[in-house]
Design a protein around this nucleic acid. Structure first.
Length: 107
DNA sequence: TGGTTGACCCGAG
DNA sequence: ACTCGGGCCAACC
């Protein structure tokens, strides 16, 4: 058996992010759970931070359906722009209705 | 070597 | 709906 390294987990998470189709979103927790590490949701954010355009990072939102803030930088506005361009809609509170847009992985 | 931070989540009250 | 506390751990001082 091969040992499960941090790099392995990261690669697996990123692979799952790539599976999220346009017009749908997934939460950090969803990705962590699907990767087989239910409570490692923070690591999804860590992984996405260093990745570039090879991964649709904008389809990942927090458990409230909101765009997670990164403090500085206006990339969160870009994220909303990209999602709306794919047909994802936000309510008046700036949240995405997860019951409608949440991605459910199909076998 | 050790403490703090952070693109998070969840249960309990 | 909100607060509080615990969990998790790579990255960064």
């Amino acid at each position: 058996m091969e040992s499960v390294t941090a790099a392995t987990i990261r690669a697996r998470m990123l692979a799952l992010v790539c599976e999220v189709p346009a017009g749908r979103v997934a939460t950090y927790g969803d990705i962590a759970r699907l990767a087989g590490f239910p409570r490692h949701s923070r690591q999804v954010g860590v992984a996405l931070r260093q990745v570039g355009s090879e991964v649709p990072w904008h389809r990942i939102v927090n458990h409230e359906g909101r765009i997670s803030r990164r403090g500085l930088d206006g990339n969160d506005e870009l994220q909303r722009y990209l999602l709306e361009a794919e047909g994802v809609m936000f309510d008046a509170e700036g949240r995405i209705p997860l019951n409608r847009f949440r991605w459910m992985k199909t076998l």
